[in-house]
Structures are given as structure tokens and as C-alpha cells.
């Protein structure tokens, strides 16, 4: 492992995340001068409120959500041995939506994060069990199962919508995915995702070996079944946590690992931390764009707009579909 090169990559990504967050804070419909912020000219008043109570927590939330989705995507692509896998395509996010909807219509708003968490994990395992044949997961099988499960879950969500009454807008917001409501209160929950992300990094050597072929994992000291289940639960857990704040946002988890693999290579020891950075940057930028120039369009729509063509490109590159 080229340590110097990897450190440089991570350092620059880290700086880029900070810069993206700062740029996001000074960008928006209300123009606020960078100089004013630096000189402390706006320590209170409306502008300060916009910056510190609205834009900053939202940008930090976007960074953490993007980072979480990206590292979950990176792990899922390896666990499913499939480069089209990510929390969105596999229906993990849809599972979270069901959990959230059920929590909302039952009126237990405090349970929303739990609903998202367990919905996502349940859905990930459902797809895994349904799509797995004996040896490996074929791309076609996996995507079709993911779609089928997603459709089933969206019908459940629709039913919830019908019976949601006054809570309908909450569910709708959640389905489209956005960060309007992100506040400082959400940040601790999102910071928790860094723990499972750390677990993924600890298992990066195992992920490397698992990405190299099924046959030799056992003789290289890995229990593939247990490791797969554990890491799948971890990735789905990350997804559940972040989507409980942001709603389901697609394609960040798919795109980020692919972009980073070009730069870092396939080694998960660098790929996972790099994906964290890349996902953070992408979602902060997408959210800033939607907030500033697209009338606060749900950011899920923006990521889908750019992510779907990328997804198509990946499909066309494959031959075994």
C-alpha cells in the first residue's frame, strides 16, 4: 500500500469536504459576504441565524448523510460482488421508508429513526435472501429482486399515505429525500454513523479478500457467512440512520465508490475512507445547488437526475446482465 499517496488523497479529500461545507454556508438565496463571516461582523442577527442555525447544520448533515451512504455503497458493492449495488438500488432505502411511514402514521414520531433503521436492515436481508442462489449473486437477479422489493415497499408506503391523513406531507417529504428540516438536533444521530463506518474500515482487509473470490476466503482466515452478515447489517444500519434524517436519497452510494476506485484503486483500506469524503462532497454540493438555484427542490431529485445516467453507463459497461 502506497502510504504517502494514500495519505495525500485522504488529506485532500478532507480539505475538500471542509471547503465544500464552507462554500455551502455562504451560498444561498440570501447573499452573505464571506469577509463578513471571517471578520465576525455578523455574530448575531438574522444573517447569523441563517448561517449558524440553518445553513451550517444543514451542510454538516448533508456531509454526514452523503458520507454514510457512500461507505455503505462501497461495502455493499463488495458484499454483493456487484458494482451496481447500493442502498437505493437494493431497496434498503425503500425498506427504511416503510419503517418511517409506519412510525409516522402510528403517531410515534420518536420512533421514526428506529423505523428507518430496522426497515432498512430488514429490507437488505430480505433482498439478500431472495436474490442469493447457491454460489453468487447474479447482477440480473439482484437488481430485479431489489426492484421487486422496492415496488412492494412503495405500495406499502402508498397505503400508509392513504391512511396518513394530516401526516401525509411528512411521509411525502421523506420519500423524496431532502435536508430541509436538518437541524443541530440531527447531528448527534448522524455522528453515530461514524462508528459503523469505522467498523467497515476495520474490516477492510476482509473486504479486500472477499472481493478477490469466494473460494479462498476461508483459507485466508475469514468466515465468509458471518462476515457478510455482520457487514451487511452494518451497512444497512448506516443507511437506516442517515435516511431517518434525510429521507431516501439515491445514487450517492452508487456513484461515490466508483469515482474513488478510479483514483484510489480497489483497496478498501483507502477506498472506504475516500468514499466517505467523496459522498460528503457530492451531497453537500447537490444540496447547495438545489437550495440556491432550484427553489429547494428535494435533493433526492437532483442526485437522481445526475446519478441515473451514471447508473445506465455502468449497466451498459457490463455484459452479464
Amino acid at each position: 500500500m502506497n502510504t504517502i499517496r494514500n495519505s495525500l488523497i485522504l488529506l485532500s479529500l478532507g480539505c475538500a469536504v471542509v471547503i465544500a461545507v464552507l462554500l455551502s454556508v455562504v451560498t444561498g438565496p440570501v447573499e452573505i459576504s464571506v469577509i463578513d463571516i471571517i471578520t465576525g461582523a455578523i455574530s448575531n442577527g438574522t444573517e447569523a441565524q441563517i448561517i449558524f442555525d440553518i445553513r451550517l447544520p444543514r451542510a454538516i448533515a448533508a456531509a454526514l448523510v452523503g458520507a454514510g451512504l457512500a461507505c455503505a455503497g462501497a461495502a455493499m458493492q463488495t458484499l454483493f460482488r456487484n458494482d451496481l449495488a447500493d442502498p437505493y438500488t437494493l431497496g434498503t432505502s425503500a425498506g427504511g421508508a416503510v419503517g418511517v411511514s409506519l412510525a409516522i402514521i402510528s403517531g410515534a414520531l420518536l420512533l421514526v429513526p428506529f423505523g428507518a433503521f430496522f426497515g432498512a436492515i430488514g429490507s437488505a436481508f430480505l433482498v439478500y435472501i431472495l436474490a442469493a442462489d447457491r454460489k453468487r449473486l447474479s447482477t440480473g437477479n439482484l437488481l430485479l429482486t431489489g426492484i421487486a422489493v422496492s415496488m412492494f415497499f412503495s405500495s406499502v408506503v402508498s397505503v400508509c399515505l392513504v391512511f396518513s391523513g394530516n401526516n401525509m406531507h411528512q411521509i411525502m417529504f421523506w420519500l423524496m429525500g431532502g435536508l430541509w428540516n436538518a437541524s443541530w438536533a440531527d447531528i448527534p444521530l448522524l455522528l453515530i454513523t461514524l462508528i459503523p463506518a469505522g467498523i467497515l474500515i476495520l474490516f477492510s482487509r476482509d473486504l479486500n479478500i472477499m472481493s478477490c473470490g469466494e473460494a479462498e476466503t476461508r483459507t485466508l482466515g475469514i468466515d465468509p457467512e458471518k462476515t457478510k452478515l455482520l457487514l451487511l447489517a452494518v451497512s444497512a444500519g448506516i443507511t437506516g440512520l442517515v435516511v431517518s434524517v434525510s429521507g431516501s436519497i439515491g445514487f450517492i452510494g452508487l456513484v461515490s465508490p466508483h469515482i474513488m476506485r478510479i483514483i484510489t484503486g480497489p483497496d478498501h483500506r483507502i477506498l472506504i475512507p475516500a468514499s466517505l469524503g467523496c459522498g460528503a462532497i457530492l451531497l453537500v454540493c447537490a444540496d447547495t445547488v438545489s437550495r440556491t438555484w432550484l427553489g429547494d427542490l428535494p435533493v433526492g431529485i437532483v442526485t437522481a437526475f445526475f446519478g441515473a445516467p451514471f447508473f445506465l453507463m455502468l449497466i451498459r459497461r457490463r455484459s452479464d446482465l
Binding site: N208, C212, G213, A215, G265, P266
Partner: peptide
């Protein structure tokens, strides 16, 4: 046969 499809050194 070595089945590695990723560009590991």
C-alpha cells in the same frame, strides 16, 4: 484460476 477482477497490485 485466479479470479481477481479488481486492479490490486
Amino acid at each position: 484460476e485466479c479470479e481477481i477482477k479488481f486492479k490490486y497490485p
